[in-house]
Write a protein that binds this DNA or RNA. Structure first.
Lengths: 338, 338
DNA sequence: CTGAAAGCGCTTACAG
DNA sequence: CTGAAAGCGCTTACAG
């Protein structure tokens, strides 16, 4: 137990009641300005610090938001989720809130235990980052608390979620290639592997459709096996002029493959990626790609969860956050030829 | 205000007092086993959740630890600090604690404001991740709370700190090269640039000394200018057989330079790095390097801060956490020739 | 084995 | 403009 200075201590020193101290420190009505000033001064001198637990107990609000990351995503080198969490905690500041990180252990997920932040009433809302099992989603839904999925959605669940717009990003990127004069455009990725690879493929597909370009099976190139391990990419006989890669790391692989075979980028082939991660600038020339707007995702998540705390019946549904294209030097404008 | 179920509600339902409910739920003495069971059952059915704010106010403990990261380290792609934070929050679990991330804004650091987690009494201790200004260190020292520096120390400050053992890591790595038969070993790094580059250099130096190898000025190769931008590495006339690079990214650069000049790794030159980050496996052959033991750092930090909460006068001083060498294929055993 | 009383630090009516 | 009283949810003595 810390020996803390309380409002009572200040009150005794100043010679007023603790009610008056409370009003003064909170800039409330009903205290003369001179007394207010005096109280604040003494409080400062005594090193007074507000006890937020007392406030919590009165208001029933903890002023904390729990951010849950399943343990599975914890060992990854790519710390996308951690960067999102960081942004979330930044945005929570504006609301006087703090973020509590709660790694959801594999056991808790399997045994369908509530997260500890929930059981102990530590938070006023929970943001879940990354995919949890179907069964666990059901548990999440029974939690009597505002909640939100981030970067993940479930088709059946009614929980609000915020996800990146994979479809639109790939669509825009392909539009760009077409605007640059490309007509023979390959897509690189195993479209049965993850939903984001699939959604990105569909964006690519839509762009082709809209521009009256037929989708050619031979230009859909596989990049990984069923277990997600990268395989050697087989290039088609008749080479396309551009490659839409499902992520930057695969673009990196495509660079290597093309270079091996003596193709120059972008003069022989243009290449675009997705994610704007470290691989995008590891290659030469640097890669044109799509960047997820982490800040926007975090900002939206915080805004939504705050709205739900104020009004628990509020629904936002599934919200897409658009990324933005980062233009670099991996795409070449083709001569007008058709 | 949430309409929560309280112990009183359970007490009313069961027909006992809330004192008895409290004892039963906390497995304390003085309640018959049958009653205890009944209370727990009803509590479960009613969806009771413990109110930790009430506990906090009684005990004067928040059961939260604040982790502060200066905003400057926030934009970095490498999320070393975030990974440390994640491990910290994992280890806090064992103690029934949670981690609150508090990004220290540049303004707060300049204006020497206390962190918000401190002002609002949100935490029982603070771990500071990454370097803050000298002036801010003084502010930190006036905080009436257990505190700890992680991955950073100040020569004058009396605050406990946990840092990675750069010196020993480079020492071990150089020992390994010597054991593999190398005698002409270069160090790559601007030793006036950062303290970690310097400490690593000194570990390399000590290893040479211990093995009776003279340090040769010509084998100290610069890798960056005063502003920290990488420069082209000038190789010495007479080539060494091995390169100790101050970090993996520089090792990556060394690979490129050597390959350009037609040297094969490791048959012509061996190369080792430091950090075991993404660059270590981006090169071929993969790099032998030193990995910081993030888990050990986090574990130690949590242990220390818990000890200080229990006993505020406790001191641990400056503690070094050793990394471990990750052996890969960038080092070649040399024929016994001397 | 069970519970009435007091208190943790603060705030919200309400009375003066 | 100021303060006594009550209460937020829980726990800690202490009495029975």
């Amino acid at each position: 137990m810390r020996s803390n200075i309380t409002m009572k201590d200040i009150a005794d020193k100043v010679g007023v009641s603790s009610v008056t101290v409370s009003k003064a420190l909170n800039d409330k009505e009903g205290v003369s300005d001179s007394l207010k000033l005096k109280i604040k001064k003494i409080a400062g001198e005594m090193g007074y610090r507000y006890n937020s637990a007392a406030k919590s107990i009165k208001e029933g609000l903890s002023y904390n938001i729990g951010v849950m990351i399943p343990q599975r995503f914890t060992g990854m080198n790519d710390s996308f989720y951690l960067r999102v969490y960081q942004q979330i905690s930044l945005h929570l500041e504006h609301y006087g809130y703090f973020g509590i990180l709660n790694v959801l252990s594999n056991e808790d997920e399997e045994q369908l235990s509530f997260p500890r932040v929930y059981n102990e009433n530590k938070v006023d809302g929970i943001i879940i980052l990354g995919q949890v099992s179907k069964e666990y989603i059901n548990i999440v839904q029974t939690m009597n608390l505002p909640k939100l999925f981030l970067d993940f959605y479930d088709e059946h669940a009614e929980i609000d979620s915020i996800i990146q717009d994979n479809f639109y990003g790939a669509y825009e990127l392909t539009n760009y290639l077409i605007a640059m004069g490309h007509r023979e455009i390959a897509y690189v990725g195993n479209i049965y592997s993850t939903s984001s690879i699939q959604d990105r493929f569909l964006g690519y597909y839509k762009s082709l459709l809209e521009h009256g370009l037929a989708f050619q099976e031979r230009l859909l190139l596989n990049d990984r096996d069923e277990r997600g391990r990268y395989i050697e990419i087989k290039l088609p006989e008749k080479m396309p002029t551009a490659f839409v890669c499902n992520c930057d790391q695969v673009a990196y692989n495509v660079y290597e493959r093309l270079t091996e075979l003596g193709y120059q980028i972008p003069s022989d082939c243009s290449v675009v990626g997705f994610d704007n991660d470290i691989y995008a600038t590891l290659v030469s020339p640097h890669l044109t790609t799509v960047e997820v707007d982490i800040d926007q995702m975090a900002r939206t998540a915080v805004k939504f969860i705050m709205e739900k705390i104020a009004n628990p019946s509020r629904r936002n549904g599934r919200v897409l956050v658009q990324g933005k294209i980062i233009y670099r030097d991996s795409v070449q404008r083709l001569e007008a030829s058709n």
